[in-house]
């Protein structure tokens, strides 16, 4: 790799890192796992003057319970999430999603914070984060703020993060009884990213016959990951049947402008949103019932 020249900085504390990003503004890029940033730098599509390597910050890689929630440090790698026993019991959707990202090398280096901050339209986590109603914590030199996942993704490669902010943590409510989730993905054969990825998170009623609540996050389909509210409405409060799921899934692409590229046309993506929504919802229900 022969990127344009840059100045490398490796802060040791979060405060130091925050001061650096504040000082350098647009001229700086944070380096976490590097698996989105370095491919761009290699092609000189990104030519930051300063690269601030946050990979050495201590205490930003963890998965723990905090005040009844699960807190995940921004520098936690995809592999750590995939293999976490805590997540396996309290939030299995996240490890399931992590396991489907790229390949072993990518999962060993890439971080959840980097993935969310980068907001690639084909990234996997956003679907899960949306379906889990997660909260994203961002810090700058004057403090921290909490951004709901629903508001986080703005456009292709654009999030609510402001210049000078570092994403520090992701917070998720642990799964409730009678709830289940699943991630279904059609991967782009070259890159591994999602052409369409659907995360479904459902809460069933007593006896597992009805859907109380459904949260559906969809990635890959359009410029940003989104909550498929039309699908959620069509499922919520309904008696579970194949037809209900099938009909609801038809709304997967409602109101969005599908992407169209070398790997999949808009028409195909729209159709796959239906298929993968159905598959994800059906499997989420099975998972929820397994709990009952």
């Amino acid at each position: 790799m022969i990127p344009a020249s840059f100045e490398y900085q490796a802060p040791k504390t979060l405060d130091e890192a925050l001061r650096l990003v504040e000082r350098h503004g647009d001229e700086a890029k944070l380096l976490a796992g590097g698996h989105s940033l370095l491919p761009l730098m290699k092609l000189r599509l990104a030519t930051p003057r300063y690269v601030i390597d946050i990979g050495h910050l201590r205490g930003m890689s963890y998965i723990r319970e905090e005040n009844g929630q699960i807190a995940i440090g921004a520098l936690t790698t995809h592999t750590e999430i995939e293999q976490s026993a805590l997540l396996a019991s309290k939030c299995p959707l996240l490890p399931e999603t992590a396991a489907q990202i790229g390949d072993v090398q990518v999962r060993n280096r890439g971080t959840i914070g980097g993935s969310l901050a980068h907001a690639d339209p084909g990234a996997d986590y956003p679907a899960a984060i949306l379906a889990l109603d997660a909260e994203i914590i961002a810090a700058n030199t004057s403090g921290t703020r909490t951004i709901p996942a629903r508001d986080f993704f703005v456009d292709m490669l654009t999030t609510q993060l402001h210049p000078g902010e570092i994403l520090t943590q992701i917070r998720i409510a642990p799964r409730r009884a009678q709830s289940g989730a699943a991630y279904e993905k059609l991967h782009q054969p070259a890159s591994g990213f999602a052409i369409v990825g659907v995360a479904a998170n459902v809460l069933l009623g007593e006896g597992g016959k009805t859907i109380e609540q459904a949260a559906i996050g969809i990635t890959g389909l359009s410029a940003r990951a989104f909550r498929a509210e039309a699908v959620e409405r069509a499922l919520s409060g309904k008696h579970i049947s194949e037809k209900v799921i099938e009909d609801a899934s038809r709304n997967g692409a409602e109101g969005v402008e599908p992407l169209s590229d070398l790997h999949a046309s808009g028409e195909y993506r729209r159709e796959m949103a239906r298929v993968f929504t159905r598959r994800a919802v059906a499997r989420a229900i099975v998972a929820a019932r397994g709990d009952a």
Binding site: P39, L43, Q188, P189, A190, S191, L262, H263
Partner: peptide, 24 residues
């Protein structure tokens, strides 16, 4: 059989120009 194709667009640009787009 399943994936590979060197795709040039009408301008003669190789749009499957890297491994992120050319599937092995």
């Amino acid at each position: 059989a399943l994936f590979e194709e060197a795709v040039y667009d009408e301008q003669g640009q190789l749009i499957t120009g890297e491994l992120m787009d050319y599937a092995l």
